[in-house]
Design a protein around this nucleic acid. Structure first.
Lengths: 341, 341
DNA sequence: GTGAAAGCGCTAACAT
DNA sequence: ATGTTAGCGCTTTCAC
């Protein structure tokens, strides 16, 4: 591939002049500029980013650590990040943690090694202190979906507790009392917080959450399916299911269909996340919106502001919002229907 | 961040020695090696990839051009690419084309500029010749989901025509005759090929495809929904819908539910792609498997082989496979049910 | 086994 | 407005 030197020689100018034309860092005589531009095209010149990074001490790359790129949740986060980064002329370098502490660390290290100008980190498996330690090597790092007190101003998170609370409140408002919790069998903060929100709402309604129906499994469509299938067969008095996330809720819906439940009247189902899955199931899922794409964009904005040393004040805390669709019915209606059949 | 020089000084060795320890390119006396290792840890040394790339003339980066990272299809492709790349110790650099020729070109250029060792390209909007021209600047490029005669050996594609054909055959085998085609309103080869497959199957069954029911719209859940809704209301004699992809098929299912169709008996629906959406809808979608993740992995393997100058012979052509789930019923059953109601 | 030194392609002073 | 030059941090000969 052609280098800046090749271009300079062919255009009879110095490499500085070529550099100026490429970067627009200073004015160049029109004739020379045109000649350079022409030669660049002829030679299909593409500046070497490695050399640029080395000389200029910035790479123009934004690193992002996610868990699993195929998961709609991370894919959406990534999209938000990419959109915003591209607008700022930066490239996104993605590395996967695969829900594993060691791989998460390796992912961060490789991004560090690439000298990304900034890092957006989604990590659940590395302990706070170790993460802080790793990130201390990075000029700018923003943490998403996690709150670390020491760097609270560089954390962007979603209020999972409020999400669990609001979702459950919504179910209670529809008259449901026998509400089951379909949880995730993994103690990450998301899960714990949503569950606490669930318990709080129940407690406030005078329902003892210890007596609430609960089942725990994998946070996937399949996990939700299996859990719901078992639960409903043994506890037919349950009139509403609060799932940890939309994937589980979708599995849940499928199980109920298979058990010939008429939805949503025979049983209401509520999710949290608001991913695309909720739009394709029938009935469409009533859920709580988790603005992932927005979070991704905000994380990048924050990172860019930090890079530019602007103290740009912005929310780093996103609140949930209930999205009403078709999977939750009021209990009254359900009961009427049941007694009628 | 610490440099190789810092490490060398602190360990009382030359930078060459540090380099040797880091890369294992030559044996170093045990004592020195240990000292270097220790200092590296103390200083949290991370080799600067830019400098490495510049000096070593390879970046260890694999570039991938996709359209939209949030689309489950590309997300899965990306996952396959990432998995395979990571095993080979390479990092993935993603750039988006956003279904637009100019942006696709910009994406490729930026990847070229980054001096990726190899490129995996998914491009639909750039004409063959221009794409060849762009890729000629890249040491190794593999094209996915497209066949360009000049570089056929570096193309990995899926037989869309066979997919359309097999899917339609499946519908015909269930006795359906009034089959509607829910197509994409954009002439990319995928769409055209699948449609030709559809027509061929129909023709073989003695059905004039010109008279077949057709509707075209956006290849999304929403697009499928709207199209199906309109189509079914005006052409109730349709007993089966062949959708361009799973997303449209999912939208289709929703429309039918809303029209109070009993599925799959009142109307069968078939998709193509086999993405996660098909597992959450009810009934689960009968579709044709498109092994995207596999294609992603194969593309990387091919790229790596090319990099290593191995002439590794491998399939660069993936065939479809029908995946039978619950959204297609045999016509006989449907008719019986209809006359009985 | 180890160190010195020459680049890799570029940017950013610094001259002119 | 333009050219010269000194690095950026590393790999890789080439000597010893």
């Amino acid at each position: 591939m052609a280098t800046i030197k090749d271009v300079a020689e062919r255009a009879n100018v110095s490499i500085s002049t070529v550099s100026r034309v490429v970067n627009g860092t200073a004015t160049v005589a029109a004739a020379k500029r045109d000649k350079v531009l022409q030669v660049m095209a002829e030679l299909k010149y593409q500046p070497n980013s490695a050399a640029r990074a080395l000389a200029g001490n910035k790479t123009g790359m934004l690193g992002i650590v996610a868990n699993d790129l195929a998961d709609p949740f991370f894919a959406t986060l990534l999209k938000g990040v990419e959109t915003e980064a591209r607008q700022a002329g930066m490239q996104v370098l993605a590395a996967c943690g695969h829900h594993d502490a060691e791989q998460e660390e390796a992912a961060i290290r490789s991004l560090l090694s690439r000298r990304c100008d900034a890092l957006i980190v989604h990590s659940k498996d590395i302990p706070d202190q170790q993460l802080l330690d790793l990130l201390s090597e990075c000029p700018v790092a923003v943490v998403v979906n996690r709150e670390i007190p020491e760097i609270a101003d560089r954390c962007i998170w979603f209020d999972n507790l409020a999400a669990g609370y609001m979702a459950t409140k919504h179910l209670l408002a529809q008259g449901h009392q026998n509400i089951a919790w379909l949880g995730r069998n993994q103690n990450i903060t998301d899960n714990v917080d949503r569950y606490i929100g669930f318990c709080n709402a129940l407690g406030q309604a005078g329902i003892d959450h210890n007596k609430a129906y609960k089942a725990f499994g994998e946070a996937t469509v399949e996990g939700g399916y299996q859990l719901a299938y078992e639960l409903i067969r043994s506890k037919s008095e349950v009139t509403a299911i609060m799932a940890y996330n939309d994937a589980m809720a979708a599995g849940c819906l499928r199980a109920l269909h298979e058990l010939n439940y008429k939805l949503p009247d025979d049983c209401s189902v509520m999710g949290i996340d608001d991913v695309i899955l909720g739009l394709v199931v029938y009935p469409q899922l009533t859920t709580v919106n988790y603005p992932v794409e927005d979070i991704g964009r905000t994380a990048v904005k924050k990172a860019l502001a930090l890079l530019a040393d602007q103290q740009l004040e912005m929310t780093n805390h996103f609140s949930p919002k209930v999205v009403i669709r078709g999977s939750v019915a009021s209990l009254r209606k359900s009961v009427l229907r049941k007694s009628g059949s």
